[in-house]
């Protein structure tokens, strides 16, 4: 349950954005969450609900976009996506894959009242 730490990091980024851009209120936040980010979306949402109280994002809704893992087969260079383990190349069956995407937790954008 490190989702609260991640939400604290989210608010650090938003605070810096607020200082730079000078908005008063945030109404929506879009996060991209890889299926292999180690995050449980429900826990992230619960942590957000707790953390946002009495802040400039108290009325904001959290929009989570869950993205699959994207990997490249090191043997035949095929690029594939998957939602579940084990990751293996459907073309040559190799399990030696390089993960390109799907482990990230990214603040994509937010909507602010300016």
């Amino acid at each position: 349950m490190h989702e609260l730490s991640l939400i604290a990091s989210l608010f650090e980024i938003l605070e810096a954005q607020k200082a730079e851009k000078g908005f008063t209120k945030i109404t929506a936040i879009k996060l991209r969450c890889g299926v292999f980010s180690g995050v449980v979306p429900e826990c992230l949402e619960a942590a957000f609900e707790v953390y946002k109280k009495d802040t400039f994002a108290s009325e904001a809704k959290l929009i989570l976009e869950v993205v699959p893992v994207k990997f490249r087969c090191r043997r035949c260079q095929q690029i594939e996506t998957a939602y579940d383990l084990p990751f293996f190349c459907p073309v040559c069956q190799s399990k030696d894959v390089e993960i390109l995407d799907g482990t990230e937790l990214t603040l994509v954008s937010f909507e602010a009242e300016i």
Partner: peptide
């Protein structure tokens, strides 16, 4: 009051990294 979407693209683990 205008609503504006601001694109950021920042990793939440970026400061740890």
């Amino acid at each position: 009051m205008n609503r504006k979407e601001i694109t950021v693209f920042e990793d939440l683990l970026g400061s740890n990294k």
